[in-house]
Amino acid sequence: MFTDFLQFTAGGLTSGAIYGLLALGWVLVMRVSGLLFFLQGEFVVVGVFVIVTLQDHGASIAVAAVGAIAACVVGALAVDGLVIRRLRSATPMSEVLVLLGLALLAGHALQQIAGPNARGVKPFLPTKPVSIFGAFVTPHQIAAVVVTAVATAAVWFGVTRTSLGRAMQACADNPEGAVLVGIRPVRLRTLGFVGAALIGGVAAVVLGPLAAMTPLGGLLWSLKGFIAAVLARWSFMGAVAAGIFLGLIESYGAGYISSVYKDVISLSMLVVVLLLQGAVSRDSIVQRLRTRRMSLR
């Protein structure tokens, strides 16, 4: 009984760590540019496929990882430069629809190129499970948690201690004022995209060996990241905690209730949380979301 619980916990922590990483990306883009970054999950999926392809051609994991991360960054720059920058209408809603559309396009394009089957990365750490407090965890799972912790620390440090990070915060709270002080929102948005792409690439490296990815699965990962970001009310630290919380809930739900409902549980949580949260919030980001004109045109 207890070992079951521990096992579910271990699994939940692992997937939670990934959700936390994804949530970090969402929060980063949201705080810097106010956009819903539906592409977050796509970076992970594309990253995994790049790694797999490179590995198939004999590359080492290190090279493949770098390649994946580079591909993600290039993709982010392309989206930013070729599409977002050209948007003529620029209501926030149409920007988000564009991101959603691009996410779907990426998924379908990937399926066109690589076929519909799920692919997983070949394990690059020893696969023998280790016993921690009675639960069996593989080194890959530990790596996922460790990497998430490191990434969180890095993001926290970058945002609160560097001038660039503070500029990002300022931009999120007050874009017009930021311009007056010399900060360029467009530049920061690009940085935000790149940061999210980096996170996506790293997530691909740690997640690849753990879970097989289908080309169209990116959107679901994105949504999970979004749920965690919402739960965390768009704070950086909270994002990881929320991700872990989400992972644990999913894991317990799947383990104790039924694995079929795994996704339904976490997705329903989003709806419930949004409705509960919907009332009054003084948080500036949530406030901004609520007061901007959300029309289609």
Binding site: M93, V96, V271, L274, L275, G278, L289
Partner: peptide, 10 residues
């Protein structure tokens, strides 16, 4: 009752 972005994602 949710606003724009949240309505879309919900």
């Amino acid at each position: 009752r949710l606003s724009g972005f949240y309505l879309a994602t919900a």
